[in-house]
Design a protein around this nucleic acid. Structure first.
Length: 423
DNA sequence: AACAATCGCAACCGCGCATAT
DNA sequence: GATATGCGCGGTTGCGATTGT
């Protein structure tokens, strides 16, 4: 697990990039793609390390970056995403086309945190400050040593936040958060996993009651009902609209499964076929997302991901075909076709755009749960309800649904065990 | 006008994971 | 299996710009 060799090399420039350096890097990548980043500076004639070049490209030179101030819709979306994902800026950034994780992180630290505090909301817990002050993280005590740890939901702060949510959910069978936080948990003994049969029962009964992926009945073992909807607090000043985007504890029809549906950007909506406007908001429309509620409609065959060149990630929205993305979203500034820019196309790996695609035929359905599962492993968060949700949309027979869900359950459980064995 | 404090942003650093050797 | 290398992520720092005194 070595340090980067380039870090040891001397005579490499650091600090701000000059326009000449930018031009060199831009020209090189435009012509040849970045390939191996460590070779880029040499090939481009730059006295920089590859890492620095990569950062410069991603955060500044990349042509598909959106410039300018964040819109209120983007800020609201960031807040909502942060409530679920914590400081996983790169994951948040994937939901904000044209924005970088660094940009979002800076915005959060410099602006949004303050705004939330001014509104009496704790930016770590996304709960009212008064409530947070009263309840001093009873579940897992982590000494507060600095502001950063206090402010950092992805470290101790996040764990406290989530354990707070878990404890408030009053369910003894809530699942823990894995990943980076596992070092701070105290062991497998704290886990109380619902029996698979119970889980499947609840899932199936919940699904049977629904025309879509949205759940009206509570699925215990899932804490997201506790998450807050900011729309009334932050979005109200923009025309008083309500944003029931994807989690809204005040909307019983938007609980559980739908709480983890991906937020949808206007650009995504414009090309997606599987997302429907909620009948509760039939009048909503336009470019804004703040007054719109979307859900995944499993009753609509066209919303299934089982067709053609389109895929769907486990977050519940469809992908355009690669070429379509290339032409419409990634390289909107050029009318060059991808085949004329193979070096550019090569750089566009689907996992970089979204978190993988699903198998698109029933014959490969056995890989579905793994695909779904990989997303969850990557997200390092909660049980794979989003994957299950997507699984329902695959037009499978009930027995197949159960098999997929059962597999997911087994794999999640197995992974949790492995994770906690390493503590 | 001069200085200090604050803000916002770009870039760096260190770490962990995945893959290659 | 051990080690080296590359990549990506989140946290932090440094610096120029802006604002306040």
């Amino acid at each position: 697990m070595g340090r980067h060799s380039c870090c040891y090399k001397q005579k490499l420039r650091k600090g701000l990039w000059s326009p000449e350096e930018d031009e060199k890097l831009m020209n090189h990548i435009t012509k040849h793609g970045h390939g191996c980043w460590s070779t880029v500076p040499k090939l481009a004639g730059l006295q920089r390390c590859g890492k620095s070049c990569r950062l410069r490209w991603i955060n500044y030179l990349r042509p598909d970056l959106k410039r300018g101030a964040f819109s209120q819709e983007e800020e609201d979306l960031i807040i909502e995403l942060h409530a679920v994902l914590g400081n996983r800026w790169s994951q948040i950034a994937t939901r904000l086309p044209g924005r970088t994780d660094n940009e979002i992180k800076n915005l959060w630290n410099s602006s949004i945190k303050k705004k939330l505090r001014q509104k009496g909301i704790d930016p770590n817990t996304h709960k009212p400050l008064a409530e947070v002050d009263c309840k001093a993280a009873p579940t897992i005590s982590t000494e507060r040593t600095s502001e950063s740890s206090d402010d950092d939901p992805s470290s101790g702060g996040s764990l406290r936040n989530l354990s707070h949510i878990l404890s408030e959910a009053q369910s003894p069978e809530l699942l823990p958060v894995l990943g980076k936080h596992r070092k701070e948990t105290t062991g497998l003994a704290h886990l109380r996993v619902p029996p698979k049969e119970l889980f499947l029962d609840q899932l199936v009964s919940g699904r049977d009651n629904l025309p879509s992926c949205r759940s009206t009945g509570p699925i215990p073992n899932f804490p997201f009902q506790q998450l807050m909807c900011y729309s009334n607090e932050l979005g109200s000043k923009h025309g008083g609209s309500t944003n029931s985007l994807w989690f809204n504890q005040n909307d019983s029809s938007c609980g559980t499964v739908s709480t983890v549906m991906a937020p949808v950007s206007p650009s995504t909506l414009s090309t997606s076929t599987g997302l429907n406007r909620s009948p509760e908001n039939p009048q909503s429309g336009g470019a804004g997302i703040q007054s719109t509620q979307f859900y995944w409609d499993t009753t609509n065959p066209s919303s299934s991901s089982s067709k053609g060149s389109s895929g769907s990630n486990s977050l519940g929205f469809e992908l355009q075909s690669t070429s379509s993305i290339l032409e419409n979203s990634i390289f909107p500034w050029t009318n060059l076709s991808p085949d004329k820019n193979s070096h550019l196309e090569e750089e566009l790996k689907w996992p970089d755009l979204l978190h993988g695609t699903f198998a698109d035929t029933p014959a490969t359905m056995q890989n579905l749960s793994q695909s779904l599962y990989e997303d969850v492993v990557k997200a390092e968060s909660q049980f794979n309800m989003e994957g299950l949700c997507a699984a329902w949309s695959q037009n499978l027979q009930p027995q197949q649904h159960l098999q997929v869900v059962s597999d997911l359950y087994d794999k999640d459980l197995q992974r949790m065990s492995l994770s906690f064995e390493n503590i």
